[in-house]
Design a binder for these strands. Structure first.
Lengths: 364, 364
DNA sequence: CTGTTAGCGCGTTCAA
DNA sequence: TTGAACGCGCTAACAG
């Protein structure tokens, strides 16, 4: 509110020029690494900058339409460990390039998302990274500022996008359960079914089941451990009780575990389980939890890199899509022996190739 | 690098003025809610703004020394769930006030921290929130920009600070172990012992032990599960084998659990355990984990609020310190029956009062 | 290789 | 109650 500011009047480019006995423009050229400066003046300017502790005023540069050396990042929820990991890595890469990052959470609310997008543009970001809230987007939202999407694509956005192989990861997980001999495998989900990643994970589950000629069933809105328990109790009393469960996100995974524990069932003997998304303590649970792990760090890094490339390059490249592999981490909940005694095979599973570029609209 | 920008030439205040048939100054006054504007012109201006979709240029405002409506946040590591939670809440509060947040990670490196601090100042933040890296700070780093510290104080910084009652939380945890009859209680830590929170947690452990006339011993640099296992193996073979363990952070907690499992000991029968810092799956572990929970959300919110107050108010208040209570969450690893059968007592434990303001240099 | 002029979008200071 | 000139700190476009 109050308009206090410039408490310590900072030294300006003009001050430096005066101190160095040159014109402001010369100092500016020095700062921007122009080719044509004599050694001698360069040294004088450099010394003056040093001596006065000068640092350029970002606002003035931005006003001239120069890059702000800042990018924006919008995630649904920064408290989510997965998004936090992504954010951390983006911020790391940005720092390495001398950029600062605005971070905001949309709380999965599209209005909020748009508002933040707008606000960030007003703040002259050089580019934006977005984990988009589901919903059709009118993408004048970039309005000239490059946007790179992560984790979730947006139809017709024309933006670069970096995704995880959700579908294939899920298919592998379910196929693994099938290889253990389980046939009645349930998929349980709780995320909003509009979210791309959830859809893909369910699709991967269905792919695996279908390709084995099995019936499949996905429970979509299992929001609480309680509701899951009730469902399972009934299902287990039925004619075709499920033998294994695949969950599409880690909140659901923990709810399922809780439900199973309350039913006094044992994992994996009474019910095998694989979850999508790793968590910190998955290996300390008993049984340890088999999961599909997402390359969170890589997701952030690649997206940031793509954005930087887009910022630097002169506009019109055709948009690029990157698909990052997910990894099946075999532990005990799927029926495998505890991973500690299996490290070599786990290692093999872990390495499944590196990021591959796939064409989307038309590969360049 | 490339100097593309202003792709779509945005509408300026002058455009609005022209459209409304008034002078630029009038529009400016309207935007800044000056008292003396006639209803009629106000409406004209407002309409023009609407019609042109005008939004003020932040760079120009900043150049005039007006607030940027942005604050900075520096945490050691954004990937850490605790810091991520704090960051999320700060960002939330900021948004509610129309502010944007720069987020950066210092990686516990003081040079990096200073560099970020400087860069943020260049970007004209209105204030900064800092989870400081240990080390003496020369606090011209704020340089007129208000700084509020979170989670860790800095000596002689003169900054406002919001802390968690680490010492008291730890003391309660250890006292709880004592109440179960354990006498030989070990404290295991791995964080850099220079970190304030770690010191306080160890001090709390020592307080509890000392006040019961018991010997205490803190293992400081237990970086791996392996080293902990080796240590425990020896200790258990000794004359006074430990009966319980208190760990000062959740990485160590999980290492200790792993070590105990590898020694085929049972928690809590062979070894009770309480950890500092809650984690997501603590209640799903078997046994479920008793922990001291920190008010991460509140920590962020209070710090942000304090910063806003500081930004708005005219400088010199004496610095304020806030101490937030930590909460002992009783589950099974301490020897209590599983918390699911104890919810009422847990509830009682959970509520321990709200934030209290304590004097530091001189209460206002 | 270096200096001069002008103006980015806005707000302060004066005058009308 | 409104407007005109000037300047915030910096740089692009021209001179020199």
């Amino acid at each position: 509110m109050a308009t206090r500011k410039q408490p310590i009047k900072s030294v300006t480019l003009a001050d430096v020029a005066r101190a160095a006995g040159v014109a402001p423009m010369t100092v500016s050229r020095f700062l921007n690494q122009h080719p044509n400066i004599s050694e001698k003046t360069a040294r004088k300017v450099s010394a003056a900058i040093e001596r006065l502790g000068y640092s350029p005023n970002v606002a003035a540069r931005m006003l001239m339409g120069q890059p702000s050396n800042a990018i924006g990042l919008i995630v649904p929820n920064l408290g989510d460990p997965f998004f936090a990991e992504v954010a951390h890595n983006i911020q790391e890469i940005a720092r390495e390039h001398g950029l600062l990052v605005w971070v905001a959470a949309s709380n999965s609310n599209q209005e909020t998302e748009f508002a933040i997008l707008r606000q960030m543009r007003q703040h002259c970001v050089d580019g934006m990274l977005l984990i988009a809230t589901p919903g059709k987007l009118k993408f004048e939202h970039g309005n000239g500022t490059p946007i790179v999407l992560l984790d979730r694509p947006v139809e017709n956005s024309g933006c670069d996008v970096v995704l995880v192989e959700n579908r294939r990861g899920s298919m592998e997980a379910v196929t693994h359960l099938l290889s253990h001999g389980y046939k009645r495998i349930l998929c349980i989900s709780s995320d909003c079914e509009k979210i791309y990643t959830t859809q893909e994970r369910i699709a991967g589950y269905e792919d695996a089941m279908r390709s084995h000629g099995l019936k499949f069933e996905a429970i979509l809105q299992a929001e609480t451990a309680e509701s899951i328990r009730i469902y399972l109790e009934q299902a287990l009393a039925g004619a075709a009780p499920p033998e294994a469960i695949f969950t599409t996100n880690n909140v659901t995974t923990s709810h399922v575990m809780e439900a199973i524990q309350e039913l006094n069932l044992s994992i994996p003997d009474d019910m095998a389980l694989i979850g999508f998304d790793d968590f910190e303590l998955a290996s300390l649970l008993r049984p340890s939890l088999t999961v599909v792990r997402q390359p969170a760090a890589d997701l952030g890094r690649q997206a940031a890199r793509l954005l930087f490339k887009r910022i630097c390059s002169d506009e019109t490249l055709t948009s690029i899509s990157l698909l990052l592999p997910a990894t099946l981490i075999l532990r005990a909940s799927c029926g495998c022996p505890d991973s500690r005694f299996l490290s070599s095979s786990v290692q093999k599973t872990r390495i499944r190739g590196i990021a591959t570029t796939i064409p989307l609209p038309a590969l360049r």
